Simulated assay, not measured.
Amino acid sequence: MSIGNSPEDERPFQDVSEETRTSVGRALQQARIAAGLTVDDVSSATRVRIAIVHAIEADNFAPCGGDVYARGHIRTLAKAVRLDPAPLIERYDADHGGRPAPTPAAPLFEAERIRPERRGPNWTAAMVAAIVAVVGFVGFTAFKGGDDGSGATDQVAQGATPTSGKSASPTPKKSKPADEKPEPSDSAIAAAPQDKVTVQVSAANGRSWISAKDHNGRMLFDGLLNKGDSKTFQDSSKINLILGDAGAIQLYVNGKKIEDDFQPGAVERLTYTKGDPEVG
C-alpha cells in the first residue's frame, strides 16, 4: 500500500475563466443600469418588446426567434445603452456555435421578394384601361346626343354649370389646407405662438425612434422617423422627448435651431418649454 497523493490530486486545476466572464445579457443589463435607463426606456427607444429585453438580459435568446434576430437585437440594445456591439456579437457567436450562415436570413427579405411580382401592377393597368373605356364611351354618347337634339345639350350644360359656379369653389379651398397640414414649413415654426411651446423633430442624418409627450404625460407620438421625415408637436407649456438615435435628429424649438452636438446612437431625454429652449 503506497502513501502519497492520489491521481485525482495531480489533476490540473479547472480553468474557470469561461464561467466567470460576463455574459452577453449581463453586460447589456449592467450598461443599461449605468446609463440610468429602465427596461421600458430601452424598449421605447429600440422598439424591442419589453419581454424580449428581459429575456436577453437573462441570457435567454429563445424568444428572439433565431440567431439572426438575436444578433440584431443584441446590436440594437448595445447601441441604446452605449456599448460596442461587436464584442457582444462575437461572444454570442462563440457561445452558440459560431456566426450563422447567410441562408437563415432569407426570411427577413421575403417581403422584398414578393414586391417585384407584377400581379398588382397588371390589375391596376386593367382597371385603368376599363375606366378609360367607360369615360370614352360616356363622352362619345354625350357628344352624339348633343348632335341629335337639344335635350342632351341641356343635360351637358346643367352638368357643367356647378363646376363653373360658386358651389365648385369651396372644394379646392378645403383640400389645400389638408395637403399643407402634415408638413408645416420652417416659416410656420418661426411664427409659432408665444404662449405655447412648438417643437419640430427632423430625421436629417438618418432614421431614429422618437417618443413625444405633452405636459400631462399624454403620448403625442411613439414611432420611427425615416431619413427626411419630420414631426411637429405643440403644447401649452411643455414637450417631453426621447430620441433613440439623437445623432440623426435636428431640432427646431420655438422657431430656433438647436445646435446641441448629439452623438450617433446616443439616447437623449429632453424637455422644452415656452421661451428659450431648455434641455430637461
Rank of each mutant, 00 (worst) to 15 (best):
R218F: 06
D186E: 11
Y92S: 08
L251V: 02
R118H: 12
Q158N: 11
R99E: 09
I3G: 09
D41Q: 10
T271M: 11
L251Q: 02
K227G: 06
R115M: 05
A35D: 14
G223M: 03
Y252I: 04
E112C: 09
A191I: 01
I52M: 12
S175Q: 13
A248L: 07
S43V: 12
D245R: 00
H73K: 12
W209S: 05
M1A: 11
M127F: 12
L220V: 02
Q30T: 10
R49H: 12
S185K: 07
G206E: 00
R82Y: 01
Q155L: 15
A178S: 11
T22K: 15
D41M: 09
S211Q: 06
G217V: 04
Q30D: 13
E112G: 11
E268P: 02
K227I: 12
L241Y: 00
P193V: 01
Y252Q: 06
K79V: 03
P177W: 00
P277F: 08
T163G: 06
G36N: 14
Q14D: 14
A125Q: 13
D245E: 02
C64W: 01
R99Q: 07
S175G: 08
G223A: 06
D276A: 10
A55I: 08
D147M: 15
P100A: 04
H96F: 08
R71P: 01
E278F: 12
D41N: 15
M127A: 14
A80G: 04
G145Y: 10
H73G: 02
K176H: 02
Y92H: 07
A191Y: 00
V199W: 02
G136H: 09
V16F: 11
E117Y: 15
S17C: 14
A142S: 06
D260Q: 15
A191F: 02
M219S: 08
L225F: 05
S202F: 01
K238N: 13
R11N: 10
A34P: 08
W123S: 08
G120F: 10
A78P: 00
K256G: 06
E259P: 04
E183V: 06
G255L: 01
A125L: 14
I249G: 00
V24G: 08
S236W: 04
W123L: 09
A246Q: 00
S185G: 07
Q30N: 12
A191D: 07
A246E: 01
P193D: 04
R47V: 10
V201M: 00
G228K: 05
P177V: 00
P12W: 13
G165Q: 06
A266F: 06
I258V: 10
G206P: 01
E268I: 10
P172A: 10
P100Q: 05
P7F: 11
A178W: 13
L77T: 03
D147A: 14
D214F: 04
K176M: 06
A126I: 12
S187V: 02
A152Q: 04
P85E: 07
A266H: 03
F221P: 00
V138D: 10
P172N: 05
